[in-house]
Design a protein around this nucleic acid. Structure first.
Length: 628
DNA sequence: AAGAGGGTTGGTTTA
DNA sequence: ATAAACCAACCCTCT
């Protein structure tokens, strides 16, 4: 056996060979053997929401990386072990006689906990751990330290703190060779994963064999397949991998004008095939593209372009700064950054469908209270793209099928679900994005939902996206809507954003009937709008004004113990209805009150009569509130 | 210290 | 057709 360091390089969200400070540090050890491994972590398989499209994208990234590793050393590849890292590593350290464990830092709240456990085990086993920052422009922990331990809540704060950390590191070239892997005995017992609760059970339709054997079905540490995971095929046309990412980057950079003059607010959310933005975000998420490689390559084009180049924050480089801002905010706050409860920086708004919070841990459980069956119906119609507003429905359908929509499209649907329509908790939308986005990043997703819902980062709640006008501004003829809502593809452009206004002869001519509430899959039927948007906008605006006046934040005692309701007493605006513990009380009034909002188990069957009774007028809600 | 100005990305009406 | 003014008015930073 060769002497020298016996190194595990643990790949996680850094599925690349180029510009990897952690991989460079591993190779600098001059290892006698180096095992590039990936551990199949039950947390992501069962406890985090992950849609088929993102699983496919991950597998693409792993396969591409593995091939690239094999090109550098025909005896090596990405070795995948099917067990949680917390239990696996202590066994690997012994069985493989490991001297060093090297990985890239991950500041995600779960990742930190996981890595703490692994590092403790390494310390007990006498294994040296090397962790290098490589996922962001600046080490997020260093940014936080230079920002007084506080989360970065604006671009200027991030820039100021970043400047104190130092210049953004220049990218490191990919290695030219890799050491051989050592022997890989796995004659120890496999610790079975916790499979309950399983947030992804619904999509696991083909029989879960993810953990059947620690080294995979053939015992060769192969990369998983969708079949092995129990998943049907993904629907997205977008494919992952470092090779693809670097190829796409070259194409972007080749268009110097596009790269240098990019202004995010001027890129169209209605553009498709191709989209108007770079589509680099899913690759950044999995680390298939280094953000510093992206930054410095763009920077070179911008610097050479000279006058006329766009500026931070609208520019391409500005977009990368936002990403670092959210990462540093998350690094500072941990789990509380991705929820309202116990988050001092997140405004409390009494939205419908609030998260259930575990009283012991203070963390959201992944379930929510149905305080209003009407709101729950709106939420489902929003999620599945049958709101009756074509612009919103097109976006949600593209998101579901492809795992990606333009940033401004995300603004539209997020505003619509929260402060500009449904008045539903941003955490509900955040969870749907978590499931469906290829580029889902816990920090960026939560941060952007807070931004759009005006609970943090942004507060001009009177700037409200119209589900009609905003789409029209970008796409008068409605090509985007026709692509994603084919029921409407032949409708006159006059009505494409408001099909309910189309006279019957026009509907007939276009082969569509605008009717119902999206409950049917029938061809040639498109639902009526689920509410009068202008009415809802007015109600939401008034409610936001009230919530801002009350001025509570997620960590306020009154929020955590429920006594916040007193501060909203007697007001006449939209807000969270009573639920559960309050239910005995509300039952007393239920008979003579408003039947449509009576607490019912998941009301799929809301009659039209009920619906009109509950159709969210502020007066009705006021009436109801005063009784309590 | 009060007030102006800025804040990646609104909508509608009027000139 | 484009641009400015208005809508009703948020928070934070800077001077």
């Amino acid at each position: 056996m060769a002497t020298g360091p016996r190194v595990i390089y643990w790949f996680r969200t850094d599925l690349r060979l180029h510009d990897s400070p952690a991989l460079a540090a591993a190779l600098a050890l001059d290892p006698a053997v180096l095992w590039p491994i990936f551990t199949w972590d039950p947390h992501y398989v069962y406890r985090a929401r992950g849609g088929l499209n993102r699983w496919q994208f991950l597998l693409d990234c792993q396969n591409d990386l593995s091939e690239s590793i094999t090109k550098l050393n025909s005896r090596s590849k990405l070795f995948v072990l099917r067990e949680g890292p917390q239990t696996l590593f202590p066994k690997l350290f012994k069985a493989w006689k490991v001297t060093h464990l090297v990985f890239e830092k991950d500041t995600d709240a779960y990742a930190r906990e996981r890595d703490e456990v692994v590092m403790r085990a390494a310390s007990e086993a006498g294994v040296e751990v090397i962790v290098k920052s490589g996922r962001t422009l600046w080490d997020s922990d260093a940014v936080v330290a230079k920002h007084g331990g506080k989360p970065t809540m604006s671009i200027s704060q991030l820039q100021t703190a970043g400047a104190k950390v130092g210049p953004i590191a220049k990218p490191i070239p990919a290695p030219q060779s890799l050491p051989n892997p050592g022997e890989m005995p796995v004659d120890f017992g496999q610790t079975p994963p916790e499979t309950e609760p399983d947030f992804n059970a619904e999509q696991r339709t083909e029989g879960d064999a993810a953990y059947a054997k620690i080294a995979g079905p053939e015992g060769d540490f192969a990369i998983e397949t969708m079949e092995e995971l129990g998943f049907p095929p993904a629907s997205t046309p977008h494919r992952g991998g470092e090779t693809r990412a670097l190829g796409m980057l070259e194409e972007i950079l080749a268009d110097k004008k596009y790269t240098a003059t990019f202004e995010k607010p001027k890129t169209s959310p209605a553009a498709f095939e191709p989209q108007s933005t770079t589509f680099m975000s899913p690759f950044l998420h999995f680390g298939a593209l280094s953000v510093r490689e992206f930054y410095w390559r763009v920077r070179a084009v911008v610097d050479a372009y000279g006058k006329g180049a766009s500026k931070v924050p609208e520019s391409l480089l500005g977009q990368l700064l936002f990403r670092d801002m959210y990462f540093a905010a998350h690094a500072a706050l941990g789990y509380s950054f991705t929820q309202t409860a116990n988050n001092p920086y997140c405004r409390f708004i009494p939205w419908h469908l609030p998260s259930k919070v575990d009283a012991k841990t203070g963390l959201v459980t992944g379930e929510y209270h149905v305080d209003s069956t009407q709101a729950d119906e709106w939420f489902r119609r929003w999620k599945y793209g049958v709101t009756g507003f074509p612009w919103i429905d097109a976006l949600m359908r593209q998101l579901r099928e492809e795992g990606w929509i333009h940033h401004l499209g995300r603004h539209s649907v997020a505003c619509f679900l929260t402060r500009g329509g449904c008045y539903i908790d941003w955490e509900r939308g955040c969870e749907v994005f978590e499931e469906w986005l290829l580029d889902h990043e816990p920090a960026c997703n939560a941060g952007n939902w807070q931004w759009l819902s005006c609970t943090a980062f942004f507060s001009q709640y009177f700037r409200c996206y119209s589900p009609v006008s905003f789409g029209q501004k970008w796409d008068k003829q409605g090509a985007y809507v026709r692509r994603w809502v084919p029921e409407l593809k032949d409708l006159d452009a006059k009505y494409i954003y408001e099909p309910w206004k189309a006279p019957l002869p026009d509907q007939k001519k276009a082969g569509v009937r605008v009717t119902g509430r999206g409950e049917t899959q029938e061809r040639g039927v498109y639902p009526k709008p689920m509410f009068d948007f202008n009415e809802r906008r007015t109600a939401c605006l008034a409610a936001m004004k009230k919530a801002y006046e009350v001025g509570l934040h997620g960590n306020d005692d009154k929020v955590l113990d429920g006594s916040w309701r007193k501060l909203f007493a007697g007001q006449d605006t939209e807000m969270m209805d009573e639920f559960e513990s309050d239910q005995g009380e509300r039952a007393d009034h239920a008979e003579d009150d408003h039947p449509a909002v009576k607490a019912e188990p998941t009301g799929d069957e809301i009659t039209p009569a009920k619906r009109s009774a509950d159709e969210g007028s502020a007066e009705q809600h006021a009436d109801k509130k005063q009784k309590f």
